[in-house]
Write a protein that binds this DNA or RNA. Sequence first.
DNA 1: ATAAAAGTTTAGACTAATCTAAAAAAAATT
DNA 2: AATTTTTTTTAGATTAGTCTAAACTTTTAT
Lengths: 218, 218
Amino acid sequence: MLSYTEENYLKTIYHLSEGGHKSVLTNEIAASLLTKAATVTDMIKKLSLKEFITYEKYYGVNVTKKGKAHALTIVRKHRLWETFLVEKLGFAWDEVHDVAEQLEHINSSLLIEKLDAFLDYPTADPHGHPIPDKHGKIKQEKQIVLKEALVNKPLVVCAVRNGSSPFLQYLSKIGVSIGVSITVRERIEFDGSLEVSIQNKKPQLISREAAENILVKE
Amino acid sequence: MLSYTEENYLKTIYHLSEGGHKSVLTNEIAASLLTKAATVTDMIKKLSLKEFITYEKYYGVNVTKKGKAHALTIVRKHRLWETFLVEKLGFAWDEVHDVAEQLEHINSSLLIEKLDAFLDYPTADPHGHPIPDKHGKIKQEKQIVLKEALVNKPLVVCAVRNGSSPFLQYLSKIGVSIGVSITVRERIEFDGSLEVSIQNKKPQLISREAAENILVKE
DNA sequence: ATAAAAGTTTAGACTAATCTAAAAAAAATT
DNA sequence: AATTTTTTTTAGATTAGTCTAAACTTTTAT
C-alpha cells in the first residue's frame, strides 16, 4: 500500500519516464513536483525499497514492472474521473485537473469499476489521453504532432500534450477540441507557425508552440 | 484550511455532540476514532487554537459556530457522495460508507455544487439522513424511533440510526428500506420486541435492538 | 587534464500525527 | 472524608514528509 505522497511520486516518475521507457533524474522529479532534490532522494529510496522503481545513485530512476502496473491504476483513475467531471458534471476541460489530482487517490476498486461502467467504458479522457483498462492495457492509436502533419491532408484532433488552463482556453478560443477536423494549409518556414483550417472554416495562423502541443490522427 | 485528519476529528466531535448540542469527552472521541486519549488531547488543542472547538481541561469539548459550519460542509459532502454512489453507480446501501469517508475530504466547492445539481438537489441520503444545503441548512422532518411508535398506525421508514453492514443487510432481508411502509401490530412487553407488518405483508417479529435503530415518520 | 559548474546525496533539523508511560485531576466507593 | 478507580493530561519517543546546508559525484569548459 502506497501513501498519497508516494503515489504522487510514482505517477510523476512514470510520466517523466514516458511510460517506463527511459530513466529519470532526481532534479526532473523535483522540478515536476515543486520539491527539493534532497526530498526526492529520500522518497526514491523508499520507493525502490518497496520495489516500485530501481535506482542507481547519481544515475537516475527506472520504473519496475510492479511500479508501472501501479502507476497505470493511478492514471486510469485520474482519466476516468476527468471523463466523469466533463461528461456528467459539465466541467470545462480546463477545470478538471486539480480535482482529478485529488480523486485519483481514492482507494476502492469497486468504485472505479462501477465508475468505468457508468461512463460506458471510455477509452480516452476529455484531453484525448488513453484510459488504461482494468488490466492496465492501453488502446494506443497512432497519433502525430500537428507540427509534423502533411499539408492539405484532413486530420482529426485526438489529444493535447499540455493540459494547462491557458493552453486549453486558447484552444477553445480558436475552435479546437477533441474530434474537430483540422487541415494544415501552409507551413511557414520562418518561425514554424502553421496556417490551418479548422472544421473547414477560413484558414488561420497558429504558432509553432501550439502546433507542437496538438496531436492528430487520420 | 484543515488537514484530512483534523477534518475527521472535527466531524466526529460534531456527530458525538449531536449537532453541537452537548459537550464531548476525550475518551468518547478516542473510542469513536480508535485512537488513544493522549492523541485526542493533542488534536483538541490544535482544533481549539484554530477556534473550531472550545475546550476546558478535564471537562470536554464544545463545537463553535465556525466548527459547526465546517462540520456541516463535510457532512454535506459525505451524504451527497453516498447518494451518488447508490443512485448513479448502483452501490448497495451497505457498501457506501468507507468510500464516502474518503470522498468527503475532496476539496472543491465547484465539484460539490455540480454534484448536487447532477443529483437534483437531494435532501436526504440513502440512509434517510438529511443533506445540509450549501448554506449548511438542514431540512429536518420530525421522525420517531420505531420502538416508540403507536400500535396500528401506518408509518413510513425514513432513516436508520446505524449504518453498519450487518444491520443494513438484516434490514434488506426483512424487506425494510427507506420509504417502505411499516405498521406496529403488537408490542411484546417481555423483551421489547415488536410484531410489525411491512408493506402490509404478514406480520413478523423484530427485536428491540432493531426497533431502536429504525426511524419512521407519518 | 584539470578546474569550475552542475547535479546528487548525506546529515541534521522541523512539523504533523501517532504512541506508551507517568503524573494529575475528577469521580466513585467505602 | 479518605481512599481507590477512572479519566485526562503531560512528557518523551517514533514515523512520514519536508527543508537547508554541507559533502560528494559527474559533467562541462577551459
